[in-house]
Amino acid sequence: MANVALDRTEYVEQAFLYKLLRERLADQMPMQELLEQARYELLATTKLPMAIDYLLTELKHSGLMAPAMYKLGHYFTAFQSYLVAQAEADVGRFTMGAALQILESEANFRIAGGTPQGMFMFQFEVLCRNRLNYDKGLTAISGDPIFDTAWTKWILMLRAQIGLVDFANLLLLASEEYRDRLLAAEESIENKGPFLFGAREGVIAIGNRGKDPLFLFAAMQRHLGYPPVPRPKPRNDNPDVIPALMRRVERLESRIKLMEEERRGGIDITKFYAKGQGRIPELDP
């Protein structure tokens, strides 16, 4: 079923749900228990509690939520379902915590009256920063109800050009700044466009051609006002991040040393005495 824009109340409850799950997921609670608890904290007059019931049924049968979200295409957007599917995948480093944080930010942007320009840049930046599949990701983005037919066609066209053409140039060609330049040069704008971005975004794209796309994203985020995309946390290979495990390893090493000493002829227990203990006072010099 085609996705349609929901009432603002639904997005308010969605943002609350994603925040609730993200915070409680840090306590290592199973997602099934979290959803069962959260269901009773949501506004009963919205459709979200019914959607959660369906998610719980799928979660109990397959252990996954994404298949149920795809089936509820009239409620969850394809991009929301795609993020959850990537977080539930066995491969990759995209976590459920990151997905929930992104979904929360996206829902809050909709509540604030987010624009198609800002929503596209936010969702596309999510794909880039988390190294998600461009083809599947852009296809999911194109089905968002915030985009009209012109936006959908342009996003789907973008799939074939991303990686081959500088993204800043692609934005410029789809901006009113490019249209104004063509008109000023008395050139035809037929078969050009669509001009989906404003002149301001076109100027930003010109200033970031040939640069790291992250600079373009940062500038767009400042001027379009969409939420900052959560940054993936770098992997920390330092073993000190798991001190409890390290203490267990140290205790095991100590036990192994004791066993080796016992096999060699006994254990000298005097080395375990604290300083000044275990001596016979009258024999001390």
Results as ranks from 00 to 15, higher is better:
39 R>L: 08
18 Y>E: 00
76 F>A: 00
22 R>L: 01
134 Y>G: 00
126 V>F: 06
55 L>R: 03
13 E>N: 06
245 L>Q: 10
257 K>S: 11
200 R>V: 05
89 A>L: 08
71 K>M: 12
169 N>S: 09
75 Y>T: 02
160 A>V: 08
244 A>T: 13
92 G>Q: 05
138 L>M: 13
169 N>M: 12
11 Y>C: 06
88 E>Q: 15
172 L>R: 12
99 A>L: 04
252 L>W: 12
172 L>N: 05
162 I>P: 04
32 Q>K: 14
159 R>Y: 03
73 G>S: 11
152 T>M: 12
228 P>D: 12
43 L>S: 14
201 E>S: 09
263 R>K: 14
170 L>D: 02
71 K>L: 13
261 E>M: 13
175 S>G: 07
29 M>C: 03
138 L>H: 07
27 D>K: 11
42 L>K: 02
22 R>C: 00
4 V>H: 11
140 A>G: 04
150 A>P: 00
128 C>G: 02
84 V>T: 07
41 E>C: 02
97 G>W: 01
226 Y>M: 03
165 V>W: 08
211 K>T: 13
238 N>L: 02
27 D>Y: 06
207 G>L: 12
167 F>I: 15
147 F>H: 08
185 A>V: 02
68 A>E: 04
152 T>K: 15
17 L>V: 00
20 L>Q: 01
94 F>C: 03
188 S>N: 13
171 L>A: 06
189 I>K: 08
121 M>E: 07
228 P>N: 11
236 N>G: 03
33 E>H: 10
116 P>H: 06
46 T>L: 09
150 A>D: 14
109 F>A: 01
272 F>P: 05
167 F>M: 14
9 T>H: 11
227 P>M: 09
284 D>V: 15
236 N>T: 12
132 L>A: 02
229 V>C: 07
59 L>V: 10
156 L>Q: 15
266 G>E: 09
222 R>Q: 14
152 T>F: 01
256 I>L: 15
273 Y>I: 01
225 G>Y: 03
67 P>D: 09
220 M>R: 02
240 D>W: 05
199 A>N: 07
46 T>G: 08
210 G>Q: 06
280 I>R: 13
221 Q>A: 14
164 L>A: 14
182 L>W: 03
61 H>D: 11
132 L>D: 00
218 A>I: 02
276 G>H: 04
71 K>W: 04
57 T>Y: 09
114 G>N: 10
77 T>G: 04
184 A>F: 04
140 A>S: 14
281 P>E: 08
47 K>W: 10
62 S>K: 13
94 F>D: 01
50 M>W: 10
98 A>K: 03
128 C>E: 11
167 F>T: 10
284 D>P: 00
271 K>Q: 15
175 S>H: 04
237 D>K: 05
42 L>Y: 03
83 L>M: 13
201 E>M: 07
112 A>V: 02
57 T>K: 14
267 I>P: 07
84 V>N: 01
9 T>R: 15
214 L>P: 00
44 A>V: 09
276 G>F: 05
121 M>T: 10
88 E>S: 11
188 S>W: 04
64 L>M: 13
55 L>Y: 12
